[in-house]
Design a binder for these strands. Structure first.
Lengths: 193, 193
DNA sequence: CGTCTCGTTGAGAGTTTTCAATGTAAGTGG
DNA sequence: CCACTTACATTGAAAACTCTCAACGAGACG
């Protein structure tokens, strides 16, 4: 269960066996069935979740009841309603499992303790957030700059196998467009060949 | 010149006078005239910039020559092409001054040194990035969820005085819409009163 | 077999952009 | 101080893009 976590941590920082044991002790293991909720909107987000296996999605729901996916979290990714987790406010995101999944949960107090007791983790999270910022920046530029078709093509290029694992309607929601629009984009692409 | 920097740092971490002197030694001061470039697209982004006074904007230019502002950086904000800075790639963003400004530059090698020599700065940047992530997340959700009018109103609510300092066409670019659209939104708002 | 989920298609509606023209305020050099 | 230029905002009309709604189809699953 912790293999994936340590693998990801060790991409960015060095850890002794002792560190690893200490780190593991801060996490709680949770299994999720497909569609099961990890976080319900308006609850407090008590954990940072590391996805060991499976895929989760985090999303918000607007006034008209439409879902907007903010993150697709695969194995090796972290997911939470960050603002709720950090600021101890009510969550505006919900999080659930797209497939049966296993996650490692890190509570707020354990997060703080971990950062202090294992200084390398302070560094790990700084680097993780630094990289996430880069990704988010590009997504934001992309979202404001490109048409639906361009955004879709960029996504496919970045994650060629995404449609084998994520239904089209969720991909659409992630891109901020409708599933019908994707359907038409695919049709046009075929025409052009 | 460094007052603003220390003020911002001390919102998040504690610093001794000795730390402050050490920190200051890593920075280089630069003054920018209105419209002067801090970073040119396709150059390498060699610095993290802290805005001491003034406002800068970072933006990308698409195939059609249109500018898309990714960040408006006021006093107390940091700005850079993060990906270029961290990964040492060519920048896709340009950065210039909207007003006469003063910035403090932190080079890549000084950044690394600073994080190691002053551990509190590791913590500072972790918290800074953590908060930036929260903001970016909300912007991304907003960008994918709301209409031009809703996005504009949200921005005005968040930064009531923004239009006193930032021309409308730049605000439009920041929101990923056109200045004409903002003009029409304002017209409609007056009608409703 | 029936139900549920997911994707496709068409037609019409809505939003935002594009392009072009005009207005207005501010800044510069003579 | 005026004339000229430049930057920025407004308005209209047409075009482009994407959505909405509704119907239909295909596959998975119990």
């Amino acid at each position: 269960m912790f293999d994936k976590l340590f693998q990801k941590l060790e991409e960015k920082i060095q850890l002794s066996e002792k560190d690893k044991k200490r780190i593991a002790s801060f996490f709680e293991i949770k299994k999720l069935r497909k569609k099961e909720l990890l976080l319900q909107e308006a609850d407090y987000c008590k954990n940072l979740a590391f996805v060991a296996t499976g895929v989760l999605k985090s999303y918000s729901v607007d006034d008209k009841g439409q879902k907007h996916i903010s993150l697709l979290a695969w194995e090796g990714w972290w997911v939470s309603d960050f603002k709720s987790f950090i600021c101890e406010e009510k969550a505006i995101l919900s999080i659930d499992a797209i497939e049966d999944s296993e996650v490692l949960l890190l509570s707020r107090s354990n997060y703080e303790k971990l950062l202090i007791e294992v200084p390398a983790m302070e560094r790990y999270f700084r680097i993780l957030y630094q990289n996430s910022l880069i990704t988010k920046d590009r997504r934001l530029i992309s979202s404001n700059t490109y048409t639906a078709e361009e955004k879709y093509l960029q996504l496919i290029k970045m994650y060629p196998f995404i449609s084998q694992r994520i239904p089209q309607n969720l991909i659409a929601s992630y891109l901020g467009i409708t599933t019908e629009t994707i359907s038409r984009i695919k049709k046009n692409l075929h025409k052009d060949n």
